[in-house]
Design a protein around this nucleic acid. Structure first.
Lengths: 348, 348
DNA sequence: CTGAAAGCGCTTACAG
DNA sequence: CTGAAAGCGCTTACAG
């Protein structure tokens, strides 16, 4: 049952295991004849090198770890996908750890990944970081933060800046006549959780609008919290006219809550969300959202990490997000054509 | 820079590496005193065992490979999540390979996973299977198919049977007065691609309804194909009254196409989908769909695989899917309350 | 260009 | 209960 190894290949080809290894790794000093016999032996035996053994010997696994807050969030799903694509293009595999917004799970995955000796770690921290993660960063484990980061830790950060887009959003809302604006915030332990509130407050300030505590609902980036917070808003003596959800899942929850009360968007209450997803085009009504350049973020993060692994600096990247106006805040937006498809047929 | 190893711990604790290993692996024959000193040394040194070395030695990685057709498909995202959860509960990690419905990518991932010596492979095949995958199955690599499978390969299959739900769907559509029903099919190379068409045809047959070729559009389970096929349907001299998309992504594409033509669902054309997702509650209109017990599938698949790894048989499981009627096929369905939340507050 | 040999960090019979 | 030693499957100086 023992699977066939390099020794079997060597025997079959009539050379030493050293020569087999060299031939397989494209080492220059291998005679064409030897190389040919090795390749033939590999073929007839169906030999496949054992990556575990190779990793132990070379001290590199050609594997990247990606710890994200929540795979079920379409934003992170897309991020994970672009990370895997770029990694594959650069010759790496990626192992995803889903923290589910839980610090304990995040720590579990960081530990597991480190134990497996991944070459580098990409993380979108759920909190301020566990000791294990902080230690790893300090110890020099190649690491980069994506989307969210931990202040004070010397690690490149690849993220998008939503400030300008949030300003655009507030301008849009103000222009529509809305004055009582509320936000469903993400966890204060996350940078994105804090920043989106700050940006929102700042933008409101520019219009002389306040952001009272009652209009800041504490969510956790998951749908249930969006529902709960929205119910709270609706119970207020003076409910807000607009709810801005700091991510798309909480917007889903908000939609649930509004619908459960038999209310309508945007007639009874307007809704906007951070993170754009394809379904927002087809929701009732289509949801105004702030879109991040997700694929670019994932790719840039991988490049930065691979740079670090290679001993190069690894640059931090900040990309702008942009506002996509639809109908959930009132007033008809221009008809949106679905995103163009490469195989799009022109039909009459 | 060499990270600290078992030798360092042994030195610190004043014992041999064998004792350190035994203490750490909970081997019974270790004196309490020795165990204590080892644990203390581990603590002060911050030692973490090297999983790569351990795997080489024990010939097990405690890792499962999961090759799925498309992570961006919410159905598979949820499947992946439940797989990871159950695997973690059983002490395994999982590495996900995203085939993106491409046989070549699927093969890439199967190869990479096998090279890494995962203990078992979970796959939802994109096609009839590459030689590598078939060989692995034949060679006895613990393996189980989830959702899709390959006929003739002796591997347990964990999937859901949608036949009854498709019959319910057709009954629903027929009851609504629809007679011209079309389907956007998945790739014929996949079992689910074929089965859903068969089930649909069979159910139509029970009502004496035909399924003409013109009403079978060939999709690939991705959104663009849903759009393309739907455009084709709409261009027909006699377009169908209902479009049934064999997965949720193609339903998205169908929605795009219908909207781009300025038509409305269900007034101009009805829509139903295989695979239910949370957003279908909030789309315009809410989409009638067939829901699979996704989480149960993922968990059952992991259990079957772990059984195989342990030398046990590993049982095939078939779970029923069920129809969720909403408004996309016409006639108002009863108001749907969002799924109950554990933290749901009762509000006035 | 090629081979013998050491060694990566562990685990585990084998003795004691 | 404990240690010395072999060995998992590779890669890579070191000689030749």
């Amino acid at each position: 049952m023992a699977s066939i190894g390099i020794k079997d290949v060597a025997a079959e080809a009539g050379v030493s295991v050293a020569t087999v290894s060299r031939a397989l790794n494209g080492h220059p000093s291998v005679s064409p004849a030897a190389r040919e016999r090795v390749l033939a032996a590999v073929e007839t035996l169906g030999y496949r090198p054992n990556a575990v053994a190779r990793s132990l010997r070379t001290d590199q696994t050609r594997t990247l770890g990606l710890v994200i807050s929540d795979v079920m969030n379409p934003y992170f799903t897309e991020l994970a996908r672009s990370v895997e694509e770029e990694a594959r293009a650069l010759g790496y595999s990626v192992i995803i750890g889903n923290a589910d917004e839980r610090p304990d799970l995040q720590d579990h995955h960081v530990t597991t990944l480190l134990d497996r000796r991944i070459d580098g770690l990409l993380v979108s921290p759920t909190d301020g970081g566990s000791p294990r993660m902080l230690d790893a960063a300090r110890a020099g484990t190649p690491m980069v933060f994506v989307d969210r980061w931990i202040p004070g830790v010397d690690v490149p950060v690849v993220r998008s800046d939503g400030r300008a887009a949030v300003r655009d959003l507030v301008a849009h809302l103000y222009g529509l006549g809305h004055r009582r604006l509320a936000i469903i915030a993400g966890p204060a332990a996350t940078t994105t959780g804090r920043e989106r509130v700050d940006a929102f407050r700042e933008a409101l300030g520019a219009y002389g609008l306040p952001l009272p505590d009652a209009y800041i609902g504490q969510g956790d980036f998951q749908a249930d919290s969006g529902r709960r917070v929205t119910e709270g808003f609706l119970d207020l003596p003076e409910p807000p006219e607009v709810v801005f959800a700091a991510d798309n899942l909480m917007a889903l929850g908000a939609l649930d809550a509004v619908r459960a009360r038999g209310l309508r968007v945007p007639e009874d209450i307007a809704l906007a969300a951070f993170d754009d997803i394809r379904w927002f085009v087809h929701t009732d009504p289509p949801v105004t959202a702030i879109a991040q350049p997700t694929g670019d973020l994932g790719r840039a993060a991988v490049r930065a990490l691979v740079d670090r692994i290679g001993g190069r600096p690894g640059e931090s990247v900040t990309l702008p997000a942009r506002l996509v106006v639809r109908r959930s805040c009132g007033e008809a937006a221009p008809q949106e054509t679905p995103s163009p498809s490469p195989v799009r047929r022109s039909t009459p």
